[in-house]
Write a protein that binds this DNA or RNA. Structure first.
Lengths: 268, 268
DNA sequence: TGTTCTTACATGTCATGACAAGCGCGGGCG
DNA sequence: CGCCCGCGCTTGTCATGACATGTAAGAACA
């Protein structure tokens, strides 16, 4: 019976080995502000990413995890459910929980800004501010932000660079109150999402994306350093705070050859 | 399994503690094979979609839902969690659970075939089979499906029509064993996903998408009825079964003007 | 030998109970 | 009058227990 259960005890072997289970993860819990299930999730994720649990392998069963981490089943299940939502694992009733292939794709279904996403991958980015002014909302902007046509909005236009080459033109529209504050920030250096969340304390919730293809006109071609008629991936992104208030409507024009948008979708 | 609303209307009659809805949902539960939380989810979703719970409104609290449906909190919370995952609701600790705007966007984060998605929206679709043969896998196909270069795969090429206009060219690659079976099916009439799931009993799990933009070459232009150089939205889709076995690698070429890809992404 | 049954173990569903933490409001205090 | 604190309500986290259901493999049987 040389089977996988045997490695369950080794799960918690990261400690020096002299500590009994009750001083394992549990000891630092009192110190940590993070929920238990979140800490367990982090531990499991790290072990998946570093190869302790290779692709296709079976994770320890829920009861094994309960014993290992000394928590109840509901806590283990919440950790596993979150991992599954991240696309790292999947479960089959009666068999177990398994590791999916640890590719690069995951976590791109998350709402994150350009700089945020690229920095995490070790790319060098910066933005050049090519326009920032107050304008009247056109039809699309007004509808997206829930305003009337002609109402004041702030338009911020930036060219995003990746490794010194331009990859996208971002045109963002904000309601006047937020937009005017943004006009005074250092938009070239800081991620707008960072400002919104940390300085303004907005609770970014989700965003609706619409993706289609177009070709570069003269102006786009100039900004992005491509020929007129080159393929352009256009994304409309409407970001919501507190669930339903639209805060940020953007057009993102990516050069077709320099960028690919990746995501994972689930069945059911 | 047809009716359900007739006897469970008391949710919104509200929480003043008036009438005990004892014969509500609970009576038919014994009959139904669906889990309780799933049935509750369906009821709530329908009420959100039909306007019983309008956008921005607050859903009954968890304890109110417990009383209404006569279930425990864990069951209510699972229903609410699923609704949130679908993008229909969001929660704020200490305040409540609220309805997001019931737009058209939702459920497009799900993995579904073209016909599946369009039929649900009431569009008329059909596919014209433009090619189906066994070929040797090229580098990209081999890598995607986890095969060696030159190994036999089955290539199926179809032009998808929406309301009688061509909107996309789909080129799909399957491992030889599955592909050969597919060659004998009526691929013009049936959705491939339908065949894979129902006839072949594959457990479709998730798919990785890569989206970028290109322009139509002569062949694409001919198939899709657009001019050469027209913008094309190109999607690579790799579908997995049982979590990690790649089963279906496709290139989807959508005309830039006839189709938009929509999805919702969440923060965290 | 081949088939069915039993059994162990896995995840899925659901109940009950408890406490923590965030929000909003009204009453009390300065 | 205005600020703050307590209180009730909400969702968030976690424990314990039970039974249902799917899977796999060995035991029992034909």
């Amino acid at each position: 019976m040389s089977e996988r259960q045997a490695d369950a005890p080794s799960v918690r072997s990261d400690d020096a080995g002299d500590t009994p289970p009750d001083h394992g993860l549990r000891a630092e819990v009192a110190m940590s502000p993070l929920p238990l299930y979140s800490q367990i999730k982090d531990v499991l994720r790290e072990r998946i990413l570093d190869g302790t649990y290779p692709a296709h392998s079976k994770l320890p069963s829920e009861s094994a995890l309960m014993a290992t981490f000394e928590v109840s089943r509901i806590t283990v299940r919440q950790a596993l459910r979150d991992l599954q939502k991240e696309g790292l694992t999947f479960s089959i009733q009666g068999k177990g929980t398994f590791v999916t292939k640890p590719k690069a794709v995951q976590e791109l279904t998350r709402l994150q800004g350009f700089g945020e996403a690229m920095a995490r991958k070790g790319y060098e980015t910066y933005s050049k501010l090519t326009g920032a002014r107050e304008v009247g909302a056109d039809r699309d902007v007004a509808r997206a932000l829930g305003l009337s046509r002609g109402e004041a909005v702030v338009e911020i236009e930036r060219v995003r660079h990746l490794n010194r080459s331009p990859v996208s033109l971002d045109v963002s529209y904000f309601p006047a109150d937020v937009g005017r504050r943004l006009l005074q920030e250092d938009l070239a250096a800081r991620d707008i999402f960072d400002i919104l969340e940390n300085d303004y304390a907005f609770r970014l919730q989700a965003a609706d994306l619409t993706i289609d293809a177009t070709v570069a006109d003269r102006r786009l071609a100039g900004h992005l350093g491509v020929a007129e008629g080159s393929p352009i991936l256009r994304i409309e992104r409407l970001t919501y705070v507190d669930g339903s208030r639209p805060l940020d409507f953007e057009y993102l024009y990516y050069t077709g050859d320099a960028y690919q948008y990746r995501l994972r979708v689930e069945r059911n």
